[in-house]
Design a protein around this nucleic acid. Sequence first.
DNA 1: CAGGCATATAGCCAAAGAGGCATATTGCCT
DNA 2: AGGCAATATGCCTCTTTGGCTATATGCCTG
Lengths: 126, 126
Amino acid sequence: MADASLWTALADPHRRAIVALLLERPRPVGEIVEACGLSQPGTSKHLKVLREAGLVRVRQDAQRRVYALEPAPIAELDAWLAPYRKLWNRSLDALGRRLDETARETATREAPDDAPNDLEGPTTKD
Amino acid sequence: MADASLWTALADPHRRAIVALLLERPRPVGEIVEACGLSQPGTSKHLKVLREAGLVRVRQDAQRRVYALEPAPIAELDAWLAPYRKLWNRSLDALGRRLDETARETATREAPDDAPNDLEGPTTKD
DNA sequence: CAGGCATATAGCCAAAGAGGCATATTGCCT
DNA sequence: AGGCAATATGCCTCTTTGGCTATATGCCTG
């Protein structure tokens, strides 16, 4: 499943950095190499991983290869995340936790009928 | 930066499976072991990773340790995702919602017994 | 057609990670 | 106290992966 490679691809900080770079605008390899401070082959390898995960696409411009973000896989991530979003919305409400970029604050104080995830009790953390 | 460990934690399919399990409800270790078909120590190790990433919380109930999802880190993921969401929304608009149906397709689930379970959330496409 | 860029691939090494088994630890029960 | 049940840790192995250097490929230009 491509899902696996998606997570694997984004697991690496350098690759997330590259993805962030490409969010701003498409870029040729040289630029990416310079930005993330790796060797050119190393960067190329990361780009390969991103390519195979479908996260980026390449356009050839003479000798340059211009990489650009591919939106679909990230949408996939978003879809994966969806079920969890309602969970932390509930918690956010309960704990009064403030998160920077939620934008989902609908003030829906519905009482959870089953309340599957009550994380209370003596929380023994590590 | 808990971010790194967050991605690393979710990079593993077994750990994503565990997280999916805990989305339904909190569970003791034994149940998780059974569900993901790994050895008990192996499962425990995964739980440790999730714990250290802040993704789960433990409540001690007699000899049992009941694990539950911690919403905040997933919210963090959502925050990370936010800038990209704009991007693919744009594309979605441009492509005439073709991606939308891709993202909303439902996946078939199978009951995990001893097989490698893919109880990941709404696995999209493929 | 030779030369030079820009990028990809191949080969190699060290480090991390996932998995298993055996064992320690902790709490309950008799 | 002794034993069992549930979970965590240590240790070992094997595979994967990230990084590098060296080399191949493709494309443009003189």
